[in-house]
Structure formats: structure tokens, C-alpha cells
């Protein structure tokens, strides 16, 4: 859905196109049709189109408070004990690669308690405990 929206009052007079200082509006006359175009990457949201439109056809509020566009969707890793979101699958893989070992899917709280359990179960061998605490 475009952020630049017009209502049914637009009569295609092209005042907006002719007065856009960013050249973000354009039109094409093709056959029996006039089509208007808006380029969001050029638009400065200056409001000149809204001001100039003789028909009050431009719904500028959509350029002020538009909807959210989803730009990505990826798998999420959660704490295997409590389910708290931790990081994405890709992030976990990158981290494991950099650390050169698997990363347990645990939130800081449960990572700590795991270390305590390990400490309880192990006799003083500090080296092994350090290994587990990673």
C-alpha cells in the first residue's frame, strides 16, 4: 500500500505533479487512461502537493503516520527452559561459528543456573566448570 494516497476528489489536474519540488510525482497518459505515480524514495514529504491540490484530494496523513512494512521474517531461537526470545537462528549460527562451539539456547538467568547445577555436581575441578559456564 502506497503512503501517498488520494481520495475520490482527485480529478487528475496534475497540479501536484507540476508543483512537486522533489519530482516525486509523475503521470503517464496512455490510451484513454491518465495514471499518476508517486516515488517514496524521492518524496521529501514537504506537503507541497497537499497544499497545492485544488480538490483537497491528497490524504497527507498517510505520509505522516503510515503503516509498518514487514521487511524481514526469520527463525527465532528461544530459551530452551523459559521460552524467552534470545536471537535469530542465523545469529546463533554466526555466533557458534565465531566461538567454534555450539551455543546453548539459554537466557542469562538459566545459563547462570545451569552453571550452578554444574558446580554442585562437580568436585572442585575448576577447569571443567569453566568449560561448562561458557
Amino acid at each position: 500500500m502506497s503512503f501517498f494516497r488520494i481520495n475520490e476528489r482527485c480529478n487528475g489536474c496534475l497540479a501536484c505533479v507540476q508543483n512537486c519540488p522533489a519530482n516525486a510525482l509523475d503521470y503517464v497518459d496512455e490510451g484513454n487512461k491518465r495514471r499518476l505515480f508517486h516515488n517514496m524514495s524521492l518524496c521529501a514529504r514537504c506537503g507541497q502537493c497537499w497544499r497545492i491540490c485544488p480538490e483537497q484530494a491528497i490524504e497527507f496523513q498517510h505520509l505522516l503516520k503510515g503503516d509498518w512494512d514487514e521487511v524481514a521474517s526469520m527463525d527465532l531461537i528461544r530459551c530452551s527452559v523459559c521460552g524467552e526470545p534470545l536471537y535469530t537462528m542465523r545469529f546463533g549460527e554466526d555466533l557458534a561459528h565465531k566461538l567454534d562451539h555450539d551455543v546453548h539456547a539459554l537466557c542469562p538467568e538459566h545459563r547462570q543456573s545451569l552453571a550452578l547445577v554444574a558446580w554442585k555436581n562437580l568436585v572442585p575441578g575448576k577447569t571443567e566448570v569453566k568449560e561448562l559456564k561458557r
Binding site: 514529504r45 506537503g47 497544499r51 497527507f60 496523513q61 505520509l63 505522516l64
Partner: peptide, 13 residues
């Protein structure tokens, strides 16, 4: 708001 320095924009929106 997008710009506070435009009277008509502030008034309208």
C-alpha cells in the same frame, strides 16, 4: 509530528 515549523501542517494534523 513530521515538522513543527509549518503552521498549516500543524493546524491540520
Amino acid at each position: 509530528i513530521l515538522r513543527q515549523c509549518e503552521k498549516d501542517l500543524v493546524t491540520a494534523y
